[in-house]
Design a protein around this nucleic acid. Structure first.
Lengths: 239, 239
DNA sequence: CCAAGTCTTTGATCTGCCTCATGCTTGCGA
DNA sequence: TCGCAAGCATGAGGCAGATCAAAGACTTGG
């Protein structure tokens, strides 16, 4: 995905973006040194602790964000308390894909997170001048759309076992494991997983136990696991 | 949504776009007469009958389309035959939001449909020269993303009754009824509805019957209905 | 106008996941 | 180190929606 060199030649070593681990992944990845400097000047770096709300659904969409470290969840609450998590945002992901006045979903930090924050007005002015960024944003939106539609297949047609297996494979592809190790850390709770997969926490717990018993995965700690039999897991994910 | 006048002053009366009923709704809505002429020259109008496949998942995404009349469904098939419909495309909708090489979903005609077809290469060249179109495409992608995520809430957390009620309200807002009348026509079968809502056809049929019995809706013919008690229907859709 | 096929409705029964209940584990502050 | 709260696991039983079965209701073609 990211093909250019990790270090921009003309960027000062003390610039906040200089050692950003996700610049290539993020929307900023398409910007040259000068454009990147101007871009970063448009907004500060902000930090949220686990559980904090970054944006609330129906709030005016006054800002957009680029997640640099941590994990966010995008969720919606029904009047009676039922919750659906529409997706998780990983480092490099963009928060604020909309042309509407209000946010449609709540974004909360699942783990301590840092984000680059931009006023939407300034952000819009900026992309109008930088076509590459505009195209990148479209690519990101198209990619998110395909991912959301893929999740529709999971929620509409997959069994509990298939959902859990699919979820673990997604984690494996998105959560970086220790170099050399194959242990995958994930900060979300069983409740988050349940609300993402359209299940109840008891079912999530039972299915994970079942995969452990069948020696498909191994639970190292509560929030980390290893894939023991990847083929079998992929098989289980498809049905 | 569409704010400009319905008729472009400089467009010839015999131009295929002249009496296009959905030009304002479609991506073309942002183009001036000259740009629109150039745009339309880039691709022919094509027609598909009910059941025809417009694009197949995993096909190379060589073309993009703008739907002018009819109805399409976007679907995905699991290896064992389970099907999920990710969405329906109504006149004015755009088909081909992706930066990938391949289509992720199959698009089929639910009713006889006409589309403006564009080679993707030419389409990309064109949008690079017309910023307004590029922004409009981003707006469309963002809108579709929000709709898909809203559908995730339905599939993950709503009951069968809530799903059907939500679906009927969506139809009411998107299927134009006869002027003066409140009868809503929809061409999709019970199987399509079931695969869109993550239910079985028997459940769809039972829920529709139940709403009819409760005098919330009235079934005029198999593929058309009237909303008798809209407040109640909206109440049922939310839970 | 009728025959044959397809789509839809309705009924009876089954089952996967939910609900409710309880105990266990883990982490954290006193 | 202990105690307590929050999160997680596990068991028993229930229910919404699936599955199986069969009978209407349109549609199409001869």
């Amino acid at each position: 995905m990211a093909t250019r060199a990790a270090i921009l030649p003309d960027l000062e070593q003390d610039h906040p973006c200089f050692d950003c681990a996700v610049r290539e992944l993020a929307v900023c990845g398409v910007l040259e040194s000068a454009a990147l400097r101007a871009f970063k000047e448009a907004g500060p770096t902000v930090r949220y602790e686990a559980g904090d709300t970054v944006v609330f659904e129906s709030d005016r969409a006054a800002n957009v964000y680029s997640l640099t470290t941590g994990l966010l969840r995008l969720s919606k609450l029904l009047p009676d308390g039922r919750r659906q998590i529409a997706g998780f945002l990983f480092p490099g992901d963009f928060l604020g894909i909309t042309m509407e006045e209000e946010h449609a979903f709540t974004a909360e930090a699942v783990a301590p997170s840092t984000l680059c924050k931009f006023a939407r007005r300034q952000f819009d002015d900026f992309i109008a001048k930088h076509t590459a960024l505009e195209r990148r944003l479209y690519a990101v939106a198209a990619h998110e759309l395909a991912a959301a539609r893929q999740q529709l297949v999971l929620l509409g047609r997959k069994t509990a076992t298939e959902r859990i297996a699919s979820f673990l494979l997604m984690l494996a592809s998105r959560c970086p494991s220790m170099p050399g190790g194959d242990e995958i850390d994930f900060p979300m709770s069983r409740a988050d997983i349940a609300d993402y997969l359209g299940l109840r926490i008891e079912t999530v717990s039972r299915e994970i136990t079942s995969l452990k018993t069948k020696r498909v995965i191994q639970l190292t700690r509560r929030h980390s696991f290893c894939i023991v039999d990847r083929d079998r897991l992929e098989q289980l994910a498809e049905g």
